[in-house]
Design a binder for these strands. Structure first.
Lengths: 233, 233
DNA sequence: TTTGACTATAAGTATATACATATTAATCTG
DNA sequence: CAGATTAATATGTATATACTTATAGTCAAA
């Protein structure tokens, strides 16, 4: 079984991919271990490791110590999508960016928000509603809640100059977040703010950002009709 | 400059992250090169390389040969989202899965589709409209075009047993795809198929899949109201 | 001033070796 | 036989070393 010389991890990866696609290694099946493959491919085990690790990261292989490596049963393809920072997104299209703060208040949040932010009852949060405009036209509006305890310095920031989004990205390190994407039907309020018709379908992103076991901020972005989020594998 | 002992790539990564977050290394700035960091951290260059490479993959660092490594100016966070295979998604929620083929025909596509599929004028494509049901209720419907030239064997497949989606995933290797996510307003047709009201906002995924410079298939998935796609960083 | 060749540099990668760690499988107990 | 112990094993990782490759920067020729 001398399978020729594979002297780069990319070539090893390509060969492994070929075998998976050609069904020489079928979904659910174990593939030979790293040492065996290294022997067959006439390369170092580290090279095989690099190739297989990369494939495992894309979800095509399942690897476990001692157990071995198998072809994923349901190869869930993973797409990486870039989280838009509104201003760069707009300016990247060559349009002018502007934003206005519609609401800025400190108050005890409704229970749904409180649950999502995991704050104690009675704690006041910063609430902001901001409209972002591209070439003067409504592009998206954000309904945002910020936990001031997790964000020192937010009180003294002028959020009408730099949007809350940008200020947070620039000043508060965060560890992770979770996102959901959905659609909603424009009601009276959305139609008014985004200058669209009531009853239009709108694209919505909800995002919570956390660090050190605290929710920093939770925002709901409602986009004007026609918005598309794009990505490729 | 002896920065203590960092003897795992994770610890090196953590320290680099800390310095970025603490603004010791500011956005846009070059950080010391791998050799210097290895010396400071008292570890091998390969270990530093591993740590920095991982951070570059998440978009937090920009690396270029000869130039060096710098902290990303606009740290575009990347989320990886799993592309749903409808049936597994539904069954994963403990609901029953069923699908019905509403339309199956071979015809010359409208110009918009033809452009997206990059086929020659006059070439017939396979057109399928499929409704997927969860616990008997409409969940999503797919309007799909398949390039038979790129998909040998599709003619002989019974797509009422195994959905086109599953059949393609199982039988045709693909190299990549591109996705777009958006919202639409339910018209008469969508309302009828999905058993919802006209004028409701619906979540839409459009996807083209390619391999070997050919577009294999292009599909538009329109989800019933209430659908959410979720991911985390 | 532009173009093109050259060079030094930093990341990228391959390899042998050694050890760590998770986890399965086998074995030993009570 | 159940449960604890131990051995075996595949992946995971660290290291020194050596070589490759892309490219920023420099300097000279056109």
């Amino acid at each position: 079984m001398s399978g020729g010389d594979f002297n780069s991890w990319q070539s090893v990866q390509a060969e492994v991919l070929r075998r998976i696609n050609a069904r020489e290694w079928k979904p659910g099946e174990f593939i030979p271990n790293e040492a065996e493959l290294a022997l067959e491919f006439n390369c170092a085990r580290a090279t095989v490791n690099r190739a297989l690790r990369a494939l495992a990261e894309t979800g095509l292989l399942d690897r476990r110590r001692k157990a071995g490596t198998r072809v994923a049963l349901h190869p869930v393809r993973k797409a990486t999508l870039a989280i838009p920072v509104i201003r760069y997104e707009i300016e990247g299209k060559g349009q002018s960016y502007r934003h206005t703060v519609l609401v800025e208040e400190r108050l005890v949040p409704p229970s749904g928000i409180r649950a999502r932010m995991r704050t104690n009852p009675g704690v006041k949060l910063l609430h902001l509603v901001t409209l972002h405009l591209a070439d003067g036209k409504p592009y998206v509006f954000g309904d945002r809640w910020i936990n001031p305890d997790a964000v020192p310095g937010i009180e003294s920031a002028d959020l009408s100059v730099q949007s809350a989004n940008e200020w947070l990205v620039a000043n508060i390190p965060f560890e992770g977040g979770d996102f959901s994407f959905s659609a909603m039907t424009a009601g009276k309020r959305e139609a008014e703010i985004l200058a669209c018709k009531e009853g239009e379908g709108l694209f919505v992103i909800e995002r919570s950002t956390w660090a050190k076991d605290q929710i920093i901020t939770s925002v709901r972005l409602t986009f004007a009709p026609g918005y598309r989020m794009h990505t490729e594998i």
